[in-house]
Design a protein around this nucleic acid. Structure first.
Lengths: 181, 181
DNA sequence: AACAATATATATCATTTTGAAATAAATAAG
DNA sequence: CTTATTTATTTCAAAATGATATATATTGTT
C-alpha cells in the first residue's frame, strides 16, 4: 500500500500524529505486512490534508515541535473504503537471508551458520510478539486473522529452516581452512 | 538487496543482458524474494560498469536495440562476495491481501470472499511453479533450499487461509447496504 | 546525583526504487 | 492473416528510503 492509504488506514482507528502513526504501524497489526518511515508519512499527511481527506489540530508544546494531530474526514473515510476495494497486487517478500542462502556454497560455513541462527532468533522474536498480541486481545476480526496468519507462517519458516539447514552447511564446498593448501 | 548487488548475483551465474537479468530474476530462484524492473537494472549496470565490476560486449542487432551482454569482472566477483557477508536486514513482507483482510469487517462479504479466492489461486500458482522447478533440478544447494522454503511457506499460508476464512466472512458487521442510512 | 539512553515530534535532503510509456521489429499463436 | 508475445533499451515523473538535523522530556543506569 502507498503511504497515503496506510496513513488513512491508521487514522481510521483513531486520531494520531505522524509520529504516532509510525508507532502504530511498527507495533500494531500492520507491522507484519507494512513498513513506513517519517519521510514517507509527513509528505503523505500534507497531501491528504491538501486533498481534504484529513483535518488537523495543532497542539502547541514546549521543548518539542508542536504536535499535529490528524483526523479522518468523511471524504477520507470514503477514500479508504475505495482504496481497499481496488485490485490487490500480489504479495511480495524481500529476504536478505534467503538471498544469502542461495550462495551458501561459496560462503564460509561459519558465516552461513551464524546467519541461520540469527534468522531463527528473529523469527522467535516475531513469534513472541504475536503471542503477546494474542493475549492482549484483538480490535477486530481481521486483526485476529492476521495475527494467526503471522504465527502460522513464522512457525512454518522456523520448522523448515531447522529441518533443512544441514543441507546448506553440511555440503559446503569451501571448508574454512582447506583453501590455503 | 539493492539493484546493483542483485545484478552482480545474476551475472555470477553467467553473462547476461539487462533484459535477460530481468527474466532470470522473475523466473529463477530469486523470484520468490526479489523483484526488479528495467528502470532499476539499466542504471545499476551503468554504475557497475563505471566501477569496473562488470564488463560489456555489444552485439549489433537489426530491428531491436543492440544487445549489451555484461560479464562479471574479478572485482565484481569480490564485490558480490563482500556484499553477501554484510549484515542482513530483517525479512519484509508486503501484502495487499492481508492489509485488506484487516478491514474485512467493513468490506462487503462478497468482496472479501473474492479476495480470498484470488489469493488462494495465486498461492496455488506459486506452488506449481516450485514443483516445476523441483522436477527440473537445481543449480545449487541454496537453490534447492530456497525452493523447499517457498513451498513450505506457501502451503502454510494456504492452509491457514482455508482454515480461518470463515472468521472473516462469517462475522461481517456491515451488510452490503446498511451504510447508506 | 550524574550521565546515558530512549522517547517525543517534525522536517528535509540526496539517493534509490518504482511504474509507465516510448520505440520498433521479430516471432509465436490463434 | 492478424493478434499477442517476446526481444531490447531508454527515459521520466512520482514515490519510497535512509540518514541527518533539531531539541527537550523522561526513563534507566551506575
Amino acid at each position: 500500500m502507498d503511504a497515503k492509504t496506510l496513513c488513512l488506514a491508521v487514522l481510521s482507528q483513531g486520531d494520531a500524529s505522524g509520529y504516532e502513526i509510525r508507532k502504530a504501524v511498527q507495533s500494531g497489526p500492520f507491522g507484519h505486512i507494512q513498513d513506513i518511515g517519517y519521510s514517507s508519512i509527513y509528505p503523505a499527511l500534507s497531501r491528504l490534508l491538501d486533498d481534504g481527506l484529513v483535518s488537523v489540530t495543532e497542539y502547541v508544546q514546549e521543548g518539542r515541535p508542536d504536535k499535529k494531530v490528524y483526523r479522518l474526514t468523511a471524504d477520507g473515510r470514503m477514500a479508504l473504503l475505495g482504496a481497499l476495494q481496488e485490485p490487490t497486487e500480489p504479495d511480495k517478500t524481500r529476504s536478505d537471508f534467503l538471498f544469502r542462502m542461495l550462495f551458501a556454497d561459496i560462503l564460509p560455513p561459519s558465516v552461513v551458520e551464524q546467519m541461520i541462527d540469527e534468522r531463527l532468533e528473529e523469527i522467535q522474536t516475531v513469534i513472541k510478539r504475536t503471542e503477546t498480541r494474542t493475549k492482549a486481545g484483538f480490535q477486530s476480526t481481521g486483526d485476529a486473522f492476521l495475527n494467526g496468519f503471522a504465527a502460522a507462517v513464522q512457525h512454518a519458516m522456523a520448522d523448515y529452516i531447522e529441518d533443512n539447514r544441514y543441507q546448506l552447511v553440511g555440503s559446503s564446498l569451501v571448508p574454512q581452512r582447506a583453501v590455503a593448501e
